[in-house]
Amino acid sequence: MKWYNQLVRCLMFAATCALAVQATANEVLTFDSDELRDRYTELTFQLRCPKCQNQNVADSNAPISEDIRLKTYEMLHQGYTDQEIIDFMIDRYTEFVTYKPQMSLVTIWLWVLPITCLVIGMLILFRLTKRNKQNENPALTEEESARLKALLEEKS
């Protein structure tokens, strides 16, 4: 009976392996060029899964992420540019679908605000240092320095 058990075990192991291979083989993609592969990687990292909590499309197993990955793959091979693919996704899944905000009247503040803050901060710093300089004691008059000299000499 022992050989029988072992045989069953072996078969089960083989079946599990086959299943595992099949499961991963589901999404082995072949690319026409390395450039396309790099762009695919970049895009799927930048696109955000609409169904998940803060996960990118490359990282997510959600069916919708699979769809987005596949669509990205297809569109890359059809010659669409990265921006066209992103716009295509945004048309369907809104700005939510990309981690990198698109430049628009609403989002322009993301770029403008830090620079504005920096400029304002520098202006404030400039003014404060200038004011401090003005507050400094004015230089001694000739009379005063003569007196100071006298006092110092007197001591020594």
């Binding site: 609409p50 169904k51 959600a62 069916p63 919708i64 769809d67 669509k71 369907r92 899944y93």
Partner: peptide
């Protein structure tokens, strides 16, 4: 294949 679903922006 969820084609129309994709165009509708369906997530599930």
């Amino acid at each position: 294949n969820g084609e129309l679903g994709f165009d509708l922006g369906v997530t599930g």
